[in-house]
């Protein structure tokens, strides 16, 4: 029954992100006619060394050049592989502010010829806790 040697890299990193205020419930963005999304809340996004947006998972895992940057409310949210507007973000969170994750609808490359959103409808009607039993 003895156990030792946990390696909880992903768990701990995600917990830190959640405690830092990265909400799991991003607000729906505002849209313009060109399909650009604009944050309704202060939003943290993950970028690579070239400042191109990548999935948050890269930042949660740590290592490499992935890092979070912080967009203010009203800023345009880049899709994957796109850059945020130059100079329109912070490289560390503003004091006293909490940041949401990016809206799910922006978590894709713009050229993706796929449908999305076919799962999750049942979860939206559940309560504080999620899908566990």
């Amino acid at each position: 029954m003895r156990q030792r040697g946990y390696n909880l890299t992903i768990t701990s990193a995600l917990a830190s992100a959640l405690l830092a205020g990265c909400s799991q419930n991003p607000a729906e963005p505002d849209w313009d006619d060109n399909g650009n999304a604009y944050a309704r809340r202060d939003t943290a996004i993950c970028v690579d060394k070239d400042d191109r947006r990548i999935d948050d998972d890269h930042c949660s895992r740590g290592g490499g050049h992935a890092r979070f940057i912080y967009l203010g409310s009203g800023a345009r949210i880049p899709y994957y592989r796109e850059r945020p507007p130059f100079g329109n973000y912070l490289t560390s969170p503003a004091e006293g502010k909490s940041y949401s994750t990016a809206p799910l609808a922006t978590n894709m490359t713009r050229s993706a010829a796929v449908s999305r959103g076919g799962f999750g409808g049942s979860a939206r009607s559940s309560g504080f806790f999620g899908s566990g039993s």
């Binding site: 946990y6 390696n7 909880l8 890299t9 992903i10 768990t11 995600l14 917990a15 959640l18 799991q24 419930n25 991003p26 949660s60 799910l104 999750g120 979860a123 939206r124 559940s126 504080f128 806790f129 999620g130 899908s131 566990g132």
Partner: peptide
């Protein structure tokens, strides 16, 4: 995969299984 939810329970439970 999991659904986004308020408490963080699903996200962390899934992250733990990833670990």
């Amino acid at each position: 995969t999991h659904a986004a939810e308020v408490s963080g329970e699903d996200a962390i439970t899934t992250a733990y299984l990833r670990d």
